Simulated scan of single mutants.
Amino acid sequence: MSPRLPRRGGTAEREPRPVRVPPLLLAALRDGAVPLRSDATTVTPDAALRVAVVIPQFRRGSGGHHTIADLVRGLEARGHALSLWLVDEEGRHDGQNDVDLGELFQRFFGPVAAPVRRLAVAGDDDFGGPTPGDVDVLLATGWQTVPAVLRLPGARARAYLVQDHEPEFYATSAERDWAQWTYRQGLHAVCASPWLADLVTREYDCSASSFDLGVAHEHYVPLPTHRRDDLVLFYARATTARRATTLGVLALQELHARRPDIEIALFGDGRRLATPFPHRHLGVLTPDALAHAYASATVGVVLSMTNPSLVPTEMLACGLPVVDLASDSMLATFGDDGPIALSPADPIAIAATVERLVDDLLERAERSRGGTALAATRTWPGAAEQVEAALRTALQRAE
C-alpha cells in the first residue's frame, strides 16, 4: 500500500521548515578564500588599525556579543577604527535597517562608536550590498561568520575571535563538521583563554593567540549590602547547553532535599524553568542588578563544560564564592587550588560542594578574598591590549 501524502494546504505545505546555512558557505567550500591584499607590510607596528568585525545575529543576554562589544570599546579606546557587520542566517533581524540594528546592539550590549551594518548576500556567490572594503583585518567572531569573511575582498589579514570550541555545541552533524572546518582555513585564532588557544593549535594545527576575559569593574564590585548566609544563585541559561542547566537542576534538587532551609534563585534565562524544588526566578538581569544579586548571595553556581563564561569572574569581582566544574578548561584557567571551588560533573558532588561552602564561613571568606584579588587583574582594557597584539600577529602572518 502506498504511503499517504499530505493533503494540499496541510501544515507541511503551508509551513515548510527553513534550512539554515551560513551565507557563502557553498562558495567558500568550492572556491576557497578570496586573496588577501599584498601590502600587509605597509602597516607599521604602532599604526592605528582598521578592523571590520563580522558578527552573527544577536539577542539580549548574549555573553558572546557582550564580549565583542567590550573588546570593540577597548580597541576604540586604543585609537583603532572598527565597524560591525551582521551575518544573519537565521533571519532574526529581518525588517530591521542598519539604524535599527545599531540601536538594538547598543541597547543590549552598551555604547560603541563602531557602526553596525548588515552584510547582505546576493545568491550563493556574492554580496548584494555594502561591504567593509579596504581594511587591515577582517575578524570573524563565530563559525557561521567564517565563510563570509573568507569571501570578502579588500583585507590585508584575516583573524578569528574564538570564544569557545563551537563544534561541541552540536551533536554529530554537518554543522559540527563545518564548525571544525573553520579552524583549518588559515585565520589566526584569537582565543578567549590559553586552554582554548592550546586546543585549536593542537587539534587543528591553527595559529593562535589568547586573551583573558575581562570584568566590567564599573558594575561588578563588592557592594555595601547585606550578604545572606542561606541563598544559592545558579546561572541557569537553559538555551545554552554547555552551561549544563539540567546537571545544575539535579544538583540543586539534591541540595534542597538535604537543606530545605537554603533558598535557591535562578537567573540567565528569560523563561522560568520548571524545577522539582521551589526557587526564585530572576530572569535576565542588567549588570547593576546582577552585581546586587552577586553581592547578596551566599554561593554562586556556574557550570562550564567548555570554555569558562564571563559569569564566574564577575561573581568573584563582587566577592561571591563560586562553585564550577573541574573541567579541563576551568582547571587550566583557574587552577585546582584557585579561588573557585571546582567539583566533578556529578550532581551529588556539586550539591556537597555547595553545602560545604554554605556551612563554612571561613572557607567562603578565603575564597571571596582570593576571588576579588584575581578579578582585579582581569580588565577589558587589558583584554583589548592582548587582542590588539593578536591582530598585529595576524598581519605579520599575512606578509
Rank of each mutant, 00 (worst) to 15 (best):
S327I: 01
A216C: 09
A257P: 04
I68K: 01
V299T: 08
A236M: 08
V149S: 06
P6E: 04
V137M: 11
L331A: 09
V121N: 05
S327T: 15
A48I: 00
D205T: 01
A274E: 14
A241Q: 08
T182F: 11
V135E: 10
L316G: 05
A398F: 07
A274P: 00
Y235P: 00
P260K: 06
E89S: 14
G9A: 14
L29R: 15
F127P: 03
A208R: 00
L273E: 05
T11S: 12
S38W: 00
G142C: 02
E76K: 02
E90T: 15
G300H: 13
R60F: 03
L213F: 03
L282N: 02
G283C: 05
A349S: 13
L250I: 00
L161R: 06
A390N: 07
I264E: 10
A293E: 15
T225I: 13
Q57L: 01
D336E: 14
V358T: 06
R78F: 02
V121L: 06
G129N: 09
G10I: 10
E90G: 15
L361F: 05
V34I: 09
H66R: 14
T298A: 14
D31G: 02
A349L: 09
T246F: 03
H217M: 10
R369K: 10
A192P: 04
D359L: 13
D46H: 14
R392F: 09
S329A: 15
V302N: 13
P35Q: 08
E168I: 03
Y170D: 00
E13M: 11
G63F: 00
A345L: 03
D336P: 00
T42M: 13
R17A: 15
T393E: 10
R364F: 03
G142E: 05
A244N: 06
S343E: 06
P45L: 12
V323H: 12
T393P: 01
V302T: 14
L391G: 00
A289P: 01
F169W: 13
D94N: 08
G283R: 10
F108E: 14
Y204G: 01
L233D: 01
L24D: 00
H256R: 14
I348V: 15
T11W: 11
R4W: 01
L374Y: 15
P35K: 12
R228V: 05
T201F: 00
P344M: 08
V72R: 06
A352M: 05
D269C: 11
P308Q: 07
D98H: 05
G319Y: 01
R397G: 09
P115L: 13
